[in-house]
Measured scan of single mutants.
Amino acid sequence: NRRVIAMPSVRKWAREKGVDIRLVQGTGKNGRVLKEDIDAFLAG
Rank of each mutant, 00 (worst) to 15 (best):
K12W: 11
A14R: 00
V24P: 02
A14K: 02
R2Y: 08
A40N: 14
K29T: 10
D20I: 04
G26Q: 02
S9I: 07
E36T: 13
D20A: 05
W13E: 08
M7P: 08
E36W: 11
V33Q: 02
S9W: 13
R3Q: 12
L34K: 08
T27F: 03
T27P: 00
E16S: 12
L42M: 10
L42F: 08
P8F: 08
V33R: 01
R3A: 09
D20T: 04
D20R: 04
I5P: 06
A43P: 05
D39K: 08
I21E: 00
R2I: 12
K35F: 08
R22S: 10
K29L: 12
V33A: 02
L23E: 10
G31Y: 06
A14Q: 01
D37W: 05
G18T: 03
K29V: 13
K35I: 09
P8L: 12
G26I: 02
L42P: 04
G28P: 00
K35Y: 06
R22L: 09
N30D: 12
R22M: 09
G18V: 03
R15N: 10
R3W: 08
I21L: 09
T27K: 05
T27L: 03
G28V: 02
A43F: 11
L23I: 10
V33D: 00
K29P: 13
G44T: 15
F41G: 02
R2K: 14
R22F: 09
F41V: 07
R32K: 07
K12Y: 07
G28L: 02
S9M: 09
K35D: 03
G28M: 01
G44Y: 15
G26P: 08
K35T: 05
I5T: 08
K17H: 15
N30S: 09
V19I: 10
G28A: 04
I5M: 09
K29H: 12
I21V: 05
K12R: 14
A6D: 03
G31N: 08
D39F: 07
E36C: 14
S9Y: 13
V33E: 01
V19H: 00
G28Y: 00
A40H: 12
E16P: 01
V19A: 04
R15L: 13
L42I: 14
D39V: 10
N30I: 05
K29A: 13
G31M: 05
N30L: 11
P8H: 11
N1P: 14
P8V: 09
E16D: 12
G44R: 15
D37Q: 00
V33H: 01
G18I: 03
A40K: 13
G44M: 15
N30G: 14
I21K: 01
R2N: 11
A43V: 13
L42G: 05
A43D: 11
M7V: 12
R11Q: 06
K12N: 08
R11P: 04
T27V: 02
S9V: 08
V19L: 05
G26H: 03
W13L: 14
A6R: 03
N1A: 11
G18Q: 07
G18M: 08
R32W: 08
V24Y: 01
I21N: 01
A14L: 03
I21M: 05
W13R: 10
D39W: 07
D37L: 02
I38T: 00
K12C: 14
S9L: 08
A43S: 12
V10Q: 01
I38E: 00
K17F: 07
G44A: 15
A43W: 11
G44H: 14
P8I: 10
L34G: 04
N1V: 14
V24I: 12
V4A: 06
E36R: 15
K17G: 03
E36Y: 10
S9K: 11
S9G: 10
K12E: 08
N30Q: 10
